[in-house]
């Protein structure tokens, strides 16, 4: 996992903003209703800045700071918004179903953001650990090639005492594995054979894998299974790297709708008392 120090200017700016907000809220802390309003507007402001990050990515040609700096700002403001959220909610548990929904969606959004950040920093290295020189777009082609190579190999298995078992093992275990798409998690690897443990266990029903992969004609199967499992691991990692956004982005949209509703309700039913 590679974490770099935050850019000093961004860090300094965020600390400054935090103290300014803190000081401002301290002044307002005597007036409970006003504090809720002030912190609410500040919270909305922070959400808007957070959403601007997505917009900035659409304009890579504008000289408005590198996207990586914006991401750091996004993370910093994200933390700051957490604090503002707590201030706004009075450091108390939510009451009523609408507040609970708002609270819950916000927590999910913030959680997904930080999980996403962790995934982005942690996964690239293991993702490339096994597959070095293959562009992700070529994975489907390589997988079909592997299946074709394996089908060709099985035809070459010479007749002998073990040939029937090898072919059975291939038909029942190896081929379905080579043909299958990976799920959301990758299988544990067998310590010695470095292929998925479930495959080793299933193959054991036909032949002990140590025997299966020891003959000249069957050794290439091991190489192909290993390559396929490495590709699967890469796909799984990529799914996680991209997948968290499928949670984070829709949640942002939902939260904005709820915030709009929240503001409408607060302003609509405050009957002027708050102002």
């Amino acid at each position: 996992m590679t974490i770099r120090q935050p850019k000093p200017l961004i860090l300094l700016g965020l600390i400054l903003v935090f103290f300014v907000i803190q000081n401002y809220l301290d002044i307002k802390s005597g007036e409970l209703v006003s504090l809720a309003y002030e912190s609410g507007w500040l919270l909305l402001g922070s959400f808007i800045i957070l959403a601007l990050y997505g917009m900035r990515k659409k304009f890579p040609f504008l000289p408005i700071g590198k996207t990586s700096s914006w991401l750091q700002l996004h993370l910093g403001i994200g933390l700051l918004s957490g604090y503002l959220f707590l201030v706004h909610s009075g450091f108390a548990w939510p009451q009523g179903s609408f507040e609970v929904a708002l609270y819950f969606i916000y927590l999910l959004l913030m959680g997904s953001g930080f999980i996403g950040w962790f995934i982005m920093r942690w996964l690239p290295k293991p993702m490339r650990a096994d597959v070095e020189n293959l562009h992700p777009s070529r994975i489907p082609f390589r997988r079909s090639e592997i299946l074709e190579e394996a089908d060709a190999l099985v035809l070459k298995v010479e007749e002998g005492a073990l040939s029937e078992r090898i072919i059975m093992g291939y038909t029942e275990v190896i081929r379905p594995f080579l043909n299958a798409r990976p799920g959301l998690l990758h299988s544990k690897r067998h310590n010695e054979l470095e292929i998925p443990t479930p495959i080793v266990q299933k193959l054991a029903l036909y032949l002990p894998p140590s025997i299966l992969f020891s003959t000249e004609s069957s050794r290439p199967f091991h190489k192909l299974i290993r390559e396929k499992s490495d590709l699967d691991r890469m796909i799984v990692h990529q799914r996680w790297i991209r997948g968290w956004l499928f949670l984070h982005v829709p949640l942002t949209a939902v939260l904005f709708i709820l915030i709009a509703l929240h503001i409408f309700l607060v302003l609509g039913f405050s009957s002027g008392g708050a102002s």
């Binding site: 990515k57 890579p60 590198k66």
Partner: peptide, 18 residues
């Protein structure tokens, strides 16, 4: 190098992960 763009190379600008 995006010589005609206001920002210079858009690729380096766009990378969120530095």
């Amino acid at each position: 190098l995006c010589i005609d763009q206001p920002s210079g190379p858009a690729c380096a600008n766009a990378c969120p992960h530095d």
